[in-house]
Amino acid sequence: MSGHPHDHHSDHDPHAPVEEVEGPPSEHVLLEIALRELLIEKGLFAAADVTRQIEIMDATTPEQGARLVAKFWTDPAYRQRALADGKAAAAELGIDMSVAPKLVILENTARLHHVVVCTLCSCYPRAVLGLPPAWYKSPAYRARTVKDSRGVLAEFGTSLPDDVEIRVVDSTADCRYLVVPVRPHGSEGMDEAALAGLVTRDTMIGVTLAREP
C-alpha cells in the first residue's frame, strides 16, 4: 500500500473516489507515483502531507459557498463586506482562504445574471466550492459559454427573459468568482441553514438559479 498513502483513509470517506480501472496502470498513473515517491525521498514533503491535502480537499465542498450565500441574503452588513472583499467574507465563516486567490462575489439581480467560465484553463473558486465539475473543464463549455451563454444555460435547464442582461465572466487572470443568485420567492421566513439548502454548486457558477423552497 506504500504507493497509495490515502487508500486507507478513503475506506472511511463517504465521498470515496471511484477506483482506477482494472488492468495495468496507465503511463500517467505510473508517472504520478514515480514523481511522488522521488519527491518524498528528497524530503520535499512527507507521505502524510499528501494524505492531509486530500483530506482538506475532501472537506472543501460547495456547502461552504452556500453558507456564504445564505448569510449574504440575510445580513445586509455582511453583504456589504462580501462585495468589498470576498476573501475576508469567506474567512469570517471559518473557510480557510490562506492560500486562495482574490475572491470576487457577483450578485445577481432581477436584471443582471452572471455566469462564470475560464476559457484559458479552468480557474475556479476552489476554496469555497471545492474541485470543479468535469463539465466546467470541458472544451465545449469553455468554447461555447462566451459566445452562446443563453444556449449553454438552456442546456442546464435555465431560461432567462430578454430583459435580463447575461454577463459572462471569463476568469482570465488573478480573481476567482462566486455567483450569489437571486433569493427565490417564498424563502422570506427561512433561516440561514435552510436558505443554504436552496443553493447548489451550479447555482454559484451561474448556470442554474436558486431552488424554489
Binding site: 499528501v50 480537499m57 474541485l131
Partner: peptide, 13 residues
C-alpha cells in the same frame, strides 16, 4: 464524475 485516486493525488501534489 467522482474524482479518482489519481486525480486527487495529482491535485495534492
Amino acid at each position: 464524475h467522482a474524482q479518482t485516486f489519481f486525480e486527487k493525488r495529482v491535485d495534492a501534489l
